[in-house]
Structure formats: C-alpha cells, structure tokens
Write a protein that binds this DNA or RNA. Structure first.
Lengths: 155, 155
DNA sequence: TCCTCAAGTCAACATAGTTGACATGAGCGG
DNA sequence: CCGCTCATGTCAACTATGTTGACTTGAGGA
C-alpha cells in the first residue's frame, strides 16, 4: 500500500454550474469520498484497502458464504477476488472451511480479528452517515433514502 | 479500454443488516454506481472513461483553467493527469494555449466536440438524478442535498 | 544573466481489474 | 469404478489508473 493518508481530493471544488443539477453530480462524487475517506485511512494503516473491506463487509453479513456467491455479490471476477481474499486468509482475518455436506464449496467466515477490522472500518463510514442524518431528522433521512434507492435502482 | 458495458455490480445485494445504518452505506455505494453506470457506458463507447470525463467536466466549468489548477481540483498528480489529458488533446476534445500575459501557464478549453462529449456524459448522470428528485419533490431533494453536503464536508 | 516555477517526460512501481487457459478435486450418474 | 460436471485455485498477459522520484524545458522576473 502506497500511502497512509490520501488527503487527495481535498475540499469540494467551487466550479461554475452549467446546469441546475450539476451541484447534485458533484455532491454524489464528494459524498462518496467523504463517507469513505476516514475508513480508507484506517484501512491503509492496516495495510488493507477498499476491496478488502468490501469482502469483509459482505462476509460479516453472510457468514458461511461460498466463494462463488461472494464473486456474484461483489461483481468481480474470480481472479480479481483471489489476491485480496488470500491476503485476508493469510492475515487470519477470514477462515475458510469445506461445508460438511456440500464438500465442493468453501465457506468463508470472519475471525475475531476480521470482525474487529470490519467493524472499525464500517464504523468510520457509519459515523459520517449518522452525523449527516442527525442534521436533517427522521423525515430528511427518509427522503435521502428514497432518493438514493431511486438512483441505485435507476428505475 | 477493456469493456464497453460493465454490467458488473449487478443489482443491490440483499445482505443481512448488522446495524441500522448498513442500508445507508450500501445505498451510497450503489447510488454512485447507479448514477455513473450509463455515463460510463457512453464514455466507453467513445474510448474514454471516468478520468477523462472528470477533466472535461472541470474544464467545461472553468474555461481557461491552468494545468496546475486542474491538478488541484482533481486531486491527482501531474503524472496521473498527463496521459488522459494528452489523449483529450490528441482527440481534439480540448485545446491548450499559452496565456497572453502569463505565458508560463497553459490554459485549457473545450472544443466543440469536447463540449458535446462532456454534455452527453453529464446528461446521462443528470437524467438519473432528475428522475430520482422527481419522486420526492422539492422538499425531498432539499433534504438529500443537505445530507450529502454534510457527508461531503464531514463536519 | 541567473533563478524560479509551470509544465512535460521518463522510469519504476502498486493496485485493481480484465480474459484465457488450465489444474485439482469432490460428488454424482451410469 | 469410471468419467463427467462443477467449484475452486492458479498462472500468464494485459489494461487502466494511480503513485514517487528524477529530470528537462522554457518563460519571466529580479
């Protein structure tokens, strides 16, 4: 891992707006960065990065997930999963074992250490979200969720 | 550019929620993807990708921006900017010229073709946002904006 | 004229992804 | 028990996007 603190994107740029929705585009960009910045810093200190966190996050919420299912959820190729996954296994943040009945698949689980890392990283992100939601109250948070669902599903 | 249609991340995963804010974390992830998916498809067809769009977007909103200022806004290194920027110049989507007075800096501008590409790509993103905002009305859109600002500035 | 500073360029590297090809090994049908 | 299927694992080659570090070029100001 190259850097420990991105610093990178800095503050939101103040660009002229050509359209009324330009501010929304920029907010989506800087919002994503704002949410992940501290978590990425924390992960970098652990020698990990975003893909590792994504794996830990999914396995935390689907204990005993098989590798094939993990690939589907993450939407990446088996080969792309390979390196970060092996690192997590070597570091003993994850364990894999054969299923008792279905011996073909390997089932993944977090170790205690893995759970700790996943929680700390996700906590950084949740902290940012909580602070933001606190500003707008329950109805505002509900509106945010409705907008984001519409965007995510784009329907 | 490797693929023309990502398909990638598929639909939102239905993972168990360990915390009440987990849904928000996932919505941020899939929201970003949902907003950029069509634009990235369009860009890929033009042999371009996200960094090229970011450059075009900024230059569109700050005509005659110098390269150093562009680096600051994008938050990447001079060397990282170099390749995508040169591609845009070669393709004549951007022009660069020396400033009349301050001859040290090069000033960037979109060509007509560059303006077209920037508009089409951004239009894809704006379309998604507009559809989402239409669902929740003006107060909902305002709440979304307030939440995103709080996240982006993380203060 | 010399120094500074913006810009450009080259090398080496890390990360994150892709395809393609192939090995291994378990479970199952015949 | 043989052989097929299928999940997993691994190797190689590639693309893209980023990083540092070291250097050149060329314009302008003191």
């Amino acid at each position: 891992m190259p850097k420990t603190s991105q610093a990178a994107g800095l503050h939101r740029a103040s660009l002229d707006k050509l359209h009324d929705l330009d501010a929304a585009l920029e907010l989506m960009y800087y919002g994503w960065r704002g949410m992940t910045l501290e978590a990425d810093d924390y992960l970098a200190k652990q020698g990990l990065s975003r893909p590792h966190h994504r794996i830990l996050y999914v396995v935390a919420r689907r204990p005993d997930i098989a590798i094939g299912a993990l690939i589907d959820v993450l939407g990446i190729s088996k080969q792309a999963l390979n390196r970060p996954l092996n690192l997590l296994l070597e570091r003993k943040l994850l364990t894999s074992k054969r299923a008792p009945e279905q011996h073909r698949s390997k089932l993944l689980r977090l170790t205690e250490a893995g759970r700790r890392v996943e929680q700390k990283a996700s906590d950084h992100e949740r902290k940012v979200m909580r602070k933001a939601f606190d500003r707008v109250g329950v109805p505002g948070a509900a509106a945010w969720t409705a907008v984001m669902k519409a965007i995510a599903d784009n329907n």
